[in-house]
Design a protein around this nucleic acid. Structure first.
Length: 925
RNA sequence: GCAGGGGUGGCGGAGCCUGGUCAAACGCGUUGGACUUAAGAUCCAAUCCCAAAGGGGUUCGAGGGUUCAAAUCCCUCCCCCUGCACCA
C-alpha cells in the first residue's frame, strides 16, 4: 500500500468540510488550538497539539456537530524582529539553522530579513504543512495579530480591562541593553541566555574622616556583623558619584547598571591603590574596617566592591587564608548553626577545598548559604538582632540600615554575565510608567476561579496547576517599548506585549472572515460593543450578521495547547474571558498535551535534531505522522518519535489494508460460529469504549484499543477461522473500525471507507456517522470461552516443551465436573473457606467431597475474581473446544479425530482430577 | 528557596485514585525457529530465577506499617525532573 499516494489522492476532498457557517439545525462545536508563532517552520512537535485538535474536531463532526476549527498567526512581540535583523546581519549560526535544518534556499534569506516577509514566508509554510496533514481547518478566518482589524479588536479588549480598573501603572525591573535602549528577552541575547533578575543590597560604609562612602554589594546584608575587611582591586579605577545625597565610590564597570535604576551625578574618580590607604566605618556597629586588595572580584557585579565575611563565606575565608590573615584579621562568627564553630572554614575543610580557584569553592559557598539560611541563628551583641533566624535578620538589617540611609536595593542580572547581541553587557532597568494587568485583583481572581471550577480540564490532574497559577498571579507587565502587534491605547508609544494580546482572540475568529469588509477606522468601541454585548444598534446588516455569528459560535467549547502554556497563557485566557464576557460566554474546556521527543531526546536547534513537519510528511506520510505523534503517550506526558515505532505503525496499516482489500472484493456470508460471536462481542465492546474515550480525549487509550487490541483480535480471528474470513461479521468489524479510526488517519480511513461502504464523497462519509454498539452482542462469556481455548493452547505448548515431545499422537481434553462449578459459585458468594465448607455440608454432591473442597479452596480463592459471575456449563466448554478443534489440530499437526473430549465424571484418566472449570485437564500422548 | 510531578522488567511505557484476575497491558530490543539463494519484511516460540506434565521462588527506589491479601493504602528516608513571570 502506498500511503502517500492515497493521501495525495484524497487530501483535497478531506479539507472540504472545513469551512463553517451558522447552521441553527445542528449543535455547534467551537474548537481552537493555540495559534502558531511563524518565526520558523513547524516541526513534528507542533503537530501534536494540532493533530489532537483535528482528531477531536473530526470526531465531533462524525457525531453530527457543526464544528468551527479556525487558525490564525501570532506575530506579536520581538522574536520575529530579532530574527529578521539577525538575518540582515548575516548571523552565521542562524543561517546555518535556516539552510541546514529548515532547508530554506539561500537566495531566499535576503528577502526574509524583512520581518513582514519573514512572517508571510513561514506562515505560508505552516499553513501548507497543516493542509498536508489533513487538518480540517477553516482557513477563511485566517488573520495575523498585527492586522489593523485585529488591532482594533485588541484596543477594545484593553478598554474593557481599563474600565474595570484592571489596568494599573507602576515601575518594574526589566533586563535591559542600554546601548540598544531595549528590553532583553532570551532571543535578544548572545547564546539565547534568558536573563534573570535578582535583588541585592548595597551598603554604604563611610570612609573614616572623609565625606565619602564605599558602595558595598551583598546578597546577605545580615552578615554585615561579621565583616572583617572590604575587598577592592588595587590597579583599577573607581568612580565617585553623587547618589541619594551621598558621595559614593563604585567601580567604573558597575555604573551602567546603577544608572538604569538610580539618578546619579559623576563627581570624580579614585584609584584602587588610593582606596587601600583608607579605613571605613561599619554602619551597623561603627567599628573600623580595613580595605584589602583582591584579585578575584568581578568589577561589573553590583557595585564592584564587596565585603569580606570569612567566617561565613568560603571565598572570603580562602582569600584571607591565602594572604595569611594580614593586619591581624580575626574571624568573626555571627551566625550559629548546630554542629559548626566556623561554618565557612569547616565546610571548606570537609569538602577539601584547596584555594579560591578550586571548583569546589563554589559548592562550599552553596552549602554554607543553604545551611545558614535553613538553620542559622544570629549571634551578635546587638540584642535587636541576636537570636533571630537568618532570613528574618536579613529583613531587619535592611530596614534598619535603610532608615539610616545606609542601604539601598539594587537589581542585577542573576545569571551574570549576559550579553546583548550587540555585545553590550545586559543590566537591569527600572522602567517607570510601566502598565500592568492586575491579575492580583481579588474579586477578579475569585470570578476566574469560579470559571475554572465550571470548566472541564483535560487531563484533570493539571487542574491544580491552573488553580495555583491563578492564585499566585499578581501584576503582569503588559506593555513593551518595541515589537510587532497592537499599540497600547493609553500610551501609544508602547506596544501591547505578546501574552496579553492573545487571551480572547478566539472571539475574533467568529467574525474574522467578514469584518475585513469594514475599514479599520469604522471599528470603534461601540461597533464591537454591539457585536459582543448586543449594546446599541447595528450600523448595517453585515454588522448584525457578525453579532449573530458571535452569538452562535461562542462560547469556546474546547481550547487546545501544549502543557507549557498551563502556567501562563491559559490562566490569562480564563482571566480575560471572565473580565470581558458575560458568564454564558466563558470557555468550557481546556485540553493540554505533552511534547514530542526525537529518538528519546528533546528536539533542539543545538542538537540539530528538529524534524520539520513537512519533511516528516513526505518521508513517512501524513497519517503515519499523525498517528505517531499522538499514540505513544498519555495526553500529559511526552511522547517519543522513532523509526522503529513508525515501522510498526506501517506494518499494522498494511495488515488492515490486506483485510479490507480482501473483504471488499468478496461476497460475504454470515458465519455465526462461536469465534464470530466473539468477534462481534469484541467489536461492540470496542465501539462502546472508544466512543466514551473520545469524549475525554483519551487519545492514547483509543489508539491502543483500535490499533493494537483490535488488531490482535483480528489476528486471532484469522487463525481461528483458519483463513476463512470472508464473513459478514468481519466486514461489520472493519466497517466500524474504519470510522472510529478515521479521526486519527483520515486519509487512509476515508480511502478504506470508499471500499467498505461504497461511498463517493466526504459528505456521504460523514453522513454514515458513528457506529453504534449493540449491548446484546456484548457478553463476557464469549471472552471467557475464547480465553479457555487460548489457555488450552498455552498449556499444551507448555507441556510439550516440558516433555520435549517432537510429535503429538493424541490430545485428550477433560472438561471439569459439575460439582466444581457449584463450588466456584459458593466461593463467589462467600469468599471465605469456612463458610463455603459450612454450606457444602448441606449439599448432596459436595458433602461427600469435603476433603477435595478444602484442597481446591485455596486455589479457587486466589483466582476468584477471574471466574465470571455466572456459571459456564460443561456444554459451553465442549462447544468451544469443538469450535476450536480445527485450530488445535492444525497447530499441533494432529488429525481432528485424535483430539478427544471427555467429561471428568465419566473419565477413567487419573489426571482428570486436574480439570477445573474453564481449564480442562489435558493429556498428551 | 518556594511550588508541583515522579522513581515499575534489557529499554520505552501502562497499572496505581477504586488493594486480590499482576511476573505486571501494549510496544521495542534480544534469542531460537519457519520462509528466503541471501538480507530485509513477515510469521511462530522464548525472554526475572529454579523446576521439567500445566509447578515453585523472588520482584515494581530503600526501610517500616495496615490487611487474610500491597506495585497499588499509611509513615520515614534516598534520588530525579519541571516551573518561578513580563518571555513567545
Amino acid at each position: 500500500m502506498d500511503i502517500r499516494k492515497i493521501e495525495l489522492e484524497v487530501n483535497k476532498e478531506l479539507l472540504e468540510s472545513s469551512v463553517s457557517n451558522i447552521d441553527y439545525e445542528r449543535k455547534k462545536f467551537f474548537i481552537a488550538p493555540a495559534f502558531p508563532y511563524p518565526n520558523s517552520p513547524q516541526h513534528i512537535g507542533h503537530g501534536r497539539t494540532y493533530t489532537t485538535t483535528d482528531i477531536y474536531a473530526r470526531f465531533m463532526r462524525l457525531k453530527g456537530y457543526n464544528v468551527l476549527f479556525p487558525m490564525a498567526f501570532h506575530v506579536t512581540g520581538t522574536p520575529i524582529i530579532a530574527m529578521a535583523s539577525r538575518l540582515k546581519e548575516k548571523d552565521k549560526e542562524l543561517i546555518e539553522i535556516f539552510t541546514k535544518i529548515y532547508g530554506i534556499p539561500e537566495e531566499k534569506l535576503e528577502e526574509l530579513s524583512d520581518p513582514e516577509k519573514l512572517v508571510m514566508y513561514f506562515s505560508r509554510e505552516i499553513e501548507q504543512g497543516m493542509k498536508e496533514m489533513g487538518y480540517s481547518i477553516d482557513w477563511t478566518r485566517k488573520f495575523y495579530s498585527f492586522d489593523k482589524h485585529f488591532n482594533k479588536f485588541i484596543e477594545w479588549h484593553f478598554k474593557k480591562l481599563y474600565d474595570k480598573g484592571y489596568l494599573v501603572k507602576g515601575e518594574h525591573p526589566v533586563p535591559w541593553c542600554s546601548k540598544c535602549n531595549n528590553a532583553l528577552g532570551a532571543h535578544d541575547t548572545k547564546g539565547d541566555k534568558d536573563p534573570e533578575i535578582e535583588q541585592v543590597s548595597v551598603l554604604f560604609f563611610k570612609i573614616k574622616s572623609k565625606d565619602m562612602f564605599l558602595g558595598v554589594v551583598t546578597y546577605r546584608p545580615e552578615t554585615i556583623f561579621g565583616v572583617t575587611n572590604i575587598w577592592v582591586v588595587e590597579n583599577s579605577d573607581y568612580q565617585i558619584i553623587k547618589l541619594q545625597g551621598k558621595k559614593v565610590i563604585v567601580s567604573k564597570e558597575s555604573l551602567q547598571n546603577i544608572g538604569m535604576q538610580y539618578e546619579y551625578e559623576p563627581y570624580g574618580s579614585i584609584t584602587g591603590k588610593e582606596l587601600l590607604e583608607y579605613t571605613v566605618i561599619n554602619p551597623i556597629d561603627n567599628t573600623e574596617v580595613p580595605l584589602l586588595p583582591a584579585t578575584f572580584i568581578d568589577l561589573s557585579f553590583g557595585t564592584g566592591i564587596v565585603m569580606s565575611v570569612p567566617a561565613h563565606a568560603p571565598y572570603d575565608y580562602l582569600a584571607l587564608r591565602d594572604l595569611g590573615f594580614p593586619k591581624g584579621i580575626k574571624l568573626k562568627v555571627i551566625i550559629n548553626i548546630e554542629g559548626f564553630e566556623v561554618p565557612a572554614k569547616e565546610v571548606c575543610e570537609k569538602l577539601n577545598v584547596k584555594d579560591q580557584k578550586d571548583q569546589k569553592a563554589e559548592d562550599a559557598t552553596k552549602e554554607v548559604y543553604r545551611l545558614e539560611l535553613l538553620k542559622g541563628k544570629m549571634r551578635v551583641s546587638d540584642n535587636k538582632f541576636d537570636g533571630l533566624p537568618v532570613e528574618m535578620a536579613r529583613q531587619r538589617v535592611k530596614e534598619h540600615l535603610s532608615k539610616s540611609k545606609d542601604h539601598i536595593n539594587l537589581y542585577i542580572i542573576a545569571n551574570h554575565p549576559v550579553y546583548c547581541r550587540c555585545n553590550n553587557l545586559a543590566g537591569v532597568k527600572l522602567v517607570k510608567d510601566q502598565w500592568f494587568i492586575d491579575y492580583g485583583n481579588k474579586s477578579w481572581k475569585e470570578e476566574t476561579k469560579k470559571c475554572l471550577s465550571m470548566m472541564k480540564i483535560l487531563p484533570e490532574e493539571s487542574r491544580k496547576i491552573y488553580l495555583d497559577t491563578i492564585e499566585w498571579l499578581e501584576k503582569k507587565a503588559c506593555t513593551r517599548e518595541k515589537g510587532l502587534g497592537t499599540r497600547f491605547p493609553f500610551d501609544r508609544n508602547k506596544m501591547i506585549e505578546a501574552l496579553s494580546d492573545s487571551t480572547i482572540y478566539m472571539a475574533f475568529y467568529t467574525i474574522s472572515d467578514k469584518i475585513t469588509r469594514y475599514k479599520p477606522e469604522q471599528l470603534t468601541e461601540e461597533f464591537f460593543d454591539y457585536i459582543f454585548y448586543g449594546k446599541g444598534k447595528p450600523v448595517d446588516n453585515l454588522h448584525d450578521e457578525l453579532r449573530k455569528s458571535f452569538e452562535y459560535w461562542y462560547p469556546l467549547d474546547s481550547r487546545h495547547s501544549g502543557y507549557d502554556l498551563v502556567r501562563n497563557h491559559l490562566p490569562f485566557f480564563i482571566f480575560n474571558h471572565v473580565a470581558v464576557f458575560p458568564q454564558k460566554h466563558w470557555p468550557k474546556q481546556i485540553v493540554t498535551n505533552g511534547f514530542v521527543l526525537m529518538e528519546g531526546k528533546k528536539m533542539s536547534k543545538s542538537l540539530g535534531n528538529i524534524l520539520p513537519l513537512r519533511k516528516a510528511i513526505s518521508k513517512y506520510s501524513a497519517d503515519v505522522v499523525r498517528f505517531a505523534i499522538v499514540n505513544g503517550a498519555d495526553l500529559d506526558s511526552d511522547t517519543d518519535f522513532n523509526e522503529k515505532s513508525i515501522d510498526g505503525i506501517k506494518s499494522r496499516m498494511e495488515y488492515f489494508n490486506y483485510l479490507i482489500d480482501n473483504i471488499s472484493k468478496k461476497e460475504v456470508t454470515i458465519s455465526g460460529s462461536l469465534v464470530d460471536k466473539w468477534l462481534l462481542n469484541r467489536v461492540n465492546r470496542m465501539i462502546k469504549s472508544v466512543k466514551e474515550l473520545y469524549e475525554d480525549v483519551e487519545i492514547r487509550k483509543i489508539s491502543q484499543l483500535l490499533f493494537y487490541d483490535f488488531y490482535n483480535s483480528l489476528k486471532w480471528y484469522e487463525v481461528r477461522k483458519d483463513g476463512k474470513i470472508d464473513t459478514h461479521e468481519l466486514k461489520l468489524a472493519l466497517q466500524s473500525f474504519v470510522i472510529l479510526m478515521y479521526p486519527f488517519m483520515p486519509h487512509v480511513c476515508y480511502h478504506w471507507s470508499k471500499k467498505l461502504y461504497c461511498i463517493k464523497s466526504l459528505k456521504e462519509f460523514e453522513n454514515i456517522g458513528l457506529p453504534s454498539h449493540d449491548e446484546k452482542l456484548i457478553s463476557e462469556k464469549f471472552d471467557k470461552l475464547e480465553e479457555l481455548l487460548i489457555g488450552i493452547d498455552n498449556d499444551i505448548n507448555e507441556i510439550l516443551s516440558l516433555l520435549k515431545l517432537q510429535k503429538v499422537k493424541e490430545i485428550k481434553l477433560i472438561v471439569s465436573a459439575n460439582w466444581k462449578r457449584k463450588l466456584i459459585s459458593l466461593f463467589k458468594e462467600h469468599r471465605d473457606l469456612n463458610n463455603v465448607i459450612k454450606s457444602a455440608k448441606s449439599m448432596p454432591d459436595l458433602k461427600t467431597r469435603l476433603n477435595e473442597v478444602s484442597k481446591l479452596g485455596k486455589k479457587i480463592i486466589q483466582n476468584i475474581d477471574w471466574y465470571p459471575d455466572y456459571e459456564i456449563s460443561q456444554e459451553d466448554e465442549i462447544s468451544i473446544i469443538k469450535d476450536g478443534i480445527n485450530y488445535l489440530a492444525k497447530k499441533y499437526s494432529v488429525d481432528k479425530s485424535s483430539i478427544l473430549i471427555e467429561i471428568e465424571e465419566s473419565s477413567k484418566e487419573l489426571k482428570a482430577a486436574n480439570a477445573m472449570p474453564l481449564k480442562p485437564a489435558i493429556i498428551i500422548k
